[in-house]
Computed example of a mutant assay.
Amino acid sequence: MRNHMIRKASALFLSLTTLYLFASCGSKKGEATRIVPIGILLPESGRSETQSVRGLRDGLKELGYNEEENILLEMRDAKGDRGALKSMADELVSKKIHLIFTTGTRATQAAMAATSKTPIVFRHPADPVALGLVKSMKRPGGNVTGVAALALQVTENRLEVLKQVVPGVRRVHIFYASNDKFSHENFAFTSKLAEKLGLEVVEHGIKSGDELKKSFDNLQTEEGDALFHIPDDLVESEADFIFQTARQKKLPTMFNEEPWAIKGALAAYGPSYYEMGRQAAGLVDKILKGQKPENLPVELARKFDLIINMRTVNTIGLTVPPEVLKKADKVIR
């Protein structure tokens, strides 16, 4: 009984403290306004990260939070240096910020390693449960919650979109790192879905960038072929080579995020990271107003975008149905 009352008193104190912090945001002229620091931890400055942060900023502004007035965003960007994430996460925690916003797996793991108390809100393209970031989507547990796109689970939609963009597609080539457990599982999952949709699958398991280049150079393509991308670090590290060689072979390419279409893929279908950032702002708002991350369900990305690169379309001599072009969220010309 005594422990129960202590817990209730502690919860009441936390709620009153939070209300005090944000009541001051609407204080009268002449009264001090408490500025609440929020950390942002990024693994790099790619387009997906900048779009996520822009969405977060816009979402917070819509909810009444203004930088330098009632919130302060402490940005930390590792610029691709994985080793820097740990020290940056530790630094943010030492500054006693109220919350950390992260993008992707590595930044979220670094923040989790740095603190088990400071709330963490992530923006993640895949399944946070499978990656061990949360216990479940409905009840995350711990100090972590966020917005997830469940990229693997929308693979069937992406295959269907490929069939719309390239109506004559009959066979898909899938490259993946054969010594990576997750990539191997992703391939098996995608292969079953493709066959379910009547597509033949050609497997290309590779172990290095050089092997990928050699295999792709020697690839014999036929009419009705396309390359279908599944998330894989090794394959993505050779994206520029893949796009250039695919154009030479007049091979349509379907990737999973807008940046790949901008770089040269024929099409991409994936989550809008801007909208995911705006969704994350809603979770930040709830936490700052007293709710606990452990009780806030992980939200699913609400918007997915189709991007078509007409430069690539024209280069390989493909005709995309007009009705599909009209449905595209972005057409690169």
Rank of each mutant, 00 (worst) to 15 (best):
N157S: 14
P259R: 04
K79V: 09
Q248C: 11
I307R: 00
D127N: 15
I97W: 00
L288P: 03
E299L: 10
L92R: 02
A11Q: 12
L212I: 01
Q164V: 01
T315R: 06
A280W: 02
Y65E: 04
T245A: 11
G282W: 09
E211I: 10
R106I: 10
D77S: 09
V134T: 03
S272H: 07
I287D: 01
L21Y: 13
K79H: 14
L227Y: 11
E160D: 11
D329N: 15
I307A: 00
I35H: 08
S215Q: 11
R171N: 10
K286F: 05
K95S: 07
P43H: 08
L12T: 14
G224F: 02
N157Y: 08
F122C: 00
P37H: 08
D127I: 06
T253N: 03
D240Y: 13
N309A: 04
I332W: 01
A32L: 13
K327P: 08
E91T: 11
H124E: 11
L85F: 03
E49P: 00
N256G: 13
D90F: 07
G55L: 04
E49Q: 13
N309E: 05
T312D: 01
H204T: 00
E203F: 04
E62H: 08
E294M: 08
K249R: 11
K138N: 12
K192T: 11
G83Q: 11
D217Y: 13
L288W: 01
I40M: 09
R2Y: 12
S272L: 02
F255D: 01
T18S: 14
T312R: 03
T312Q: 07
N3R: 10
L60A: 04
F255R: 02
N179A: 09
V324H: 00
K286V: 04
A107W: 00
I308Q: 05
N143V: 06
Q153D: 14
T18A: 14
R76Q: 11
Y20C: 14
F101Q: 03
M88A: 02
